[in-house]
């Protein structure tokens, strides 16, 4: 009997850096959409630039927080 184990082809020891391949565009895209929503609210309420700024900071900090949580869970 051989002690050699058949390698499990479904388990991978490759680094999972590829999962971050699209994060940059997602980050930028989410900030753009939040800024656009803020811009439209500003236009409706005549409150420029406060909702746009709020949209930017909410999305920026929120996405950083998601990034932190995802990297911490690994």
């Amino acid at each position: 009997m051989s002690d050699n184990k058949v390698p499990d082809r479904d388990s991978s020891d490759k680094p999972d850096y590829l999962k971050w391949a699209s994060f940059g565009l997602e980050f930028g895209g989410v900030i753009t959409i939040f800024c656009y929503i803020g811009f439209q609210i500003d236009a409706a309420l005549n409150s420029s630039p406060w909702f746009l700024l709020a949209g930017f900071f909410l999305s920026f900090i929120g996405m950083l927080y998601i990034l932190y949580k995802q990297t911490k869970n690994k």
Partner: peptide, 10 residues
């Protein structure tokens, strides 16, 4: 809401 928008941005 952020994750929902991310799902559509992808």
């Amino acid at each position: 809401f952020l994750e929902l928008i991310t799902a559509f941005v992808r």
